[in-house]
Nucleic acid binder design. Structure first.
Length: 349
DNA sequence: GTCCGGAATG
DNA sequence: CATTCCGGAC
């Protein structure tokens, strides 16, 4: 039973143009869907695909994932960002084997209890794996609803959120839910884009109030929050190199890159010198690398690296390692560190 | 350079 | 309520 015109239009469009061949859509395996949905949080489909393929090749089953350490999981997350997601996957697989007999739950209220899974991800998992009728409300869906119904955001955001959930619950069909959910997100990300939406080819343009009434302002833009200033943070870091080995420390209790391995970071130059002294380092030679700039939405980082080539190696303390750049040791590394290691390898070649 | 994006946490 | 997390697209 189809309830609203928008519902039928969305399902019809999927039949011709929807993304039906995504790697996690090859079967209905709830494990694969779960991993893909966590990866797809805050991350676009095309970015996720190669990470997903490597991850599933290494961890083809829930059992293989359960046998993995957090470091191994983080290794396959390296460069993808939002590393708490990998930690949440690790925590979830422990829960599944310790409390749920190794079976991924198929009950919405059980799934939503799992770490890193909210209403939208739970709905996506159940609709894509079992075709159960659950709605999703991610930013793609929000953008379509706001434009299609021309919803001016006059209310408090909490109230507005509730309104959007009510609407999507109404227009989500009982049958063909998985096609509908995939379709509305595909339409949003391929056609109803944040900038320069391709309304001419949009299957919803006949009824879309934003388009039909030819409103001057894009109602979606009214939702946007104010920008904040970018703060510049400066750090110094020490890159110790011995042959193919680089000294890395595991970050702990940090907000950014927690559980990932990085070079030792310092706020002041003098702290760098103190640290080098305390390690009683025998250096062969030092080297200057240009300052490294790195950007985030709310702040920029400049890193001034001190590169030291070592004569000999010392025993690393807890949570530190000599990382062999040529090996495939499975640890988590942020994109920044991956890039610096690549640079160093080029210089040394 | 600027914008985009789910869930947890403050 | 607001903020945080990360990397990529443009």
């Amino acid at each position: 039973m189809i309830k609203t015109p928008i519902t039928q239009l969305i399902i019809n469009w999927f039949h011709f143009y929807g993304r039906k061949y995504l790697p996690w859509k090859k079967n209905q395996n709830i494990y694969y869907i779960w991993i893909s949905e966590i990866m797809l949080q805050q991350t676009q489909v095309n970015t996720v695909i190669p990470f997903y393929k490597k991850f599933i090749t290494r961890f083809p089953s829930m059992k293989s994932l359960y046998q993995a350490s957090l470091d191994e999981i983080l290794h396959y997350w390296s460069g993808l960002g939002y590393y708490t997601r990998a930690k949440n996957i690790y925590r979830t697989i422990q829960i599944i084997f310790k409390n749920k007999k190794g079976i991924f739950p198929e009950n919405f209220f059980e799934i939503i209890q799992l770490p890193g899974i909210g209403k939208t991800t739970a709905g996506a998992i159940l609709s894509f794996s079992r075709n159960f009728s659950f709605s999703i409300l991610d930013s793609n869906v929000k953008r379509i609803l706001v434009r299609y119904y021309y919803l001016i955001n006059a209310n408090s955001s909490k109230k507005f959120e509730t309104i959007l959930w009510n609407i999507i619950n109404i227009i989500t069909p009982f049958h063909n839910t998985k096609q509908f959910n995939q379709s509305i997100m595909d339409i949003a990300s391929l056609i109803c884009t944040p900038k320069y939406p391709k309304c001419i080819i949009c299957p919803l343009n006949l009824y879309c109030l934003q388009y039909k009434k030819n409103h001057q302002k894009d109602v979606y833009l009214l939702l946007k929050k104010k920008k904040k200033k970018n703060i510049l943070k400066k750090y110094f870091c020490v890159i110790l190199i011995f042959k193919n080995y680089i000294f890395l420390e595991k970050r702990n209790q940090t907000k950014i890159w927690n559980n990932l391995f990085c070079f030792p970071f310092f706020k002041k130059k003098t702290l760098v010198y103190n640290w080098i002294k305390s390690k009683n380092i025998k250096k062969k030679r030092s080297e200057k690398l240009n300052k490294i700039k790195y950007k985030y939405t709310n702040f920029n980082i400049e890193i001034f690296p001190f590169i030291i080539h070592m004569k000999s190696i010392f025993e690393p303390e807890n949570n530190a390692i000599w990382f062999n750049c040529n090996s495939k040791q499975e640890i988590g590394l942020p994109q920044l560190v991956l890039k610096i290691i690549k640079k160093i390898r080029k210089i040394n070649e």
